[in-house]
């Protein structure tokens, strides 16, 4: 087992939603004068602690809104947690998520340069790696076209190629392997494996049982911002799917009952 790469201690993230959904400075000033604001706090992560070591690939599963993307953002250091401590050893690749934001007006090459410069690469380093990146993404003919002409899968491929080009110590994948074609998914898996062998730590959130099993030994299950389970991937998936099954089972006796809160009027 390698050294600890990612260490979270008591990490909590609170999104503060104003009950009046304040958007404007004017409303904010008025409600401040009118005696305080009322908030609804939403804890997207509650007291999460975990360590991930070099060479480990950790899967993150859980229902929609469980806090998976929020956890990945905290590890990717783009979101500073409300409380708790995050320690990351090494360089983190850009978080790969669906619709992996490239500027549509810019060409593929320009997007590569901006992303890599933001990562702290120098012009000459990028110059010497650009061919490999374009090649891995399989975009040779399209790389000088504006990014808005790319398909979702093409963007995902380019994003993956940039993120893995300089063997990051920490790679974060948020549900991205699901849009590539079979050929690309296989190439990604191979590259993740070689990164892993070289000591990179990979964190991947996915709803795909298959993707988790193919890439991860260990897996955590998040629900309502807390870690329900942290263990071997198969066991965690098993337990998670068992609860999904019982939920469905519990629902079954009253299939025609209208869900609470949904009313049709008029």
């Amino acid at each position: 087992m390698g050294p600890v790469r990612i260490n979270l201690e008591g990490v909590s993230v609170r999104y503060r939603l104003s009950t009046h959904r304040i958007h404007s400075l004017k409303e904010w000033l008025i409600s401040c004068l009118g005696g305080g604001l009322s908030y609804r706090d939403l804890w997207a992560l509650r007291d999460v602690s975990m360590s991930v070591r070099a060479g480990e690939t950790l899967g993150v599963i859980g229902p929609n809104g469980a806090g998976k993307s929020t956890l990945l953002r905290v590890v990717g250091e783009v979101l500073r947690p409300t409380t708790g401590r995050v320690r990351i050893a090494g360089r983190v690749a850009p978080i790969l998520s669906l619709g992996a934001g490239f500027s549509g007006d810019l060409t593929g090459v320009e997007n590569v340069y901006i992303n890599a410069l933001l990562l702290g690469r120098t012009r000459s380093e990028i110059d010497s790696s650009i061919d490999g990146i374009v090649d891995f993404a399989g975009l040779a003919e399209f790389i000088d076209s504006p990014a808005h002409t790319y398909s979702t899968g093409m963007m995902a491929r380019l994003g993956f190629a940039i993120a893995t080009a300089w063997a990051p110590e920490v790679l974060i994948l948020d549900e991205v392997l699901s849009v590539g074609d079979a050929h690309h998914v296989e190439r990604c898996r191979a590259r993740i494996e070689s990164l892993q062998a070289a000591g990179s730590t990979v964190l991947m959130a996915s709803h795909s049982r298959h993707a988790i099993l193919a890439n991860c030994r260990r897996c955590i299950w998040l629900d309502h911002g807390t870690v329900v389970m942290d263990g071997p991937a198969e066991e965690t998936l098993e337990a998670y799917h068992a609860t999904v099954a019982t939920c469905l089972g519990a629902d079954r006796p009253r299939p025609s009952a209208p869900p609470g809160g949904l009313r049709f009027s008029g």
Binding site: G76, A100, G101, L118
Partner: peptide
Amino acid sequence: NRALLLKVPVPKTI
């Protein structure tokens, strides 16, 4: 630059 800000940790002053 929302997409970049949620992807790469950079000083937001950039």
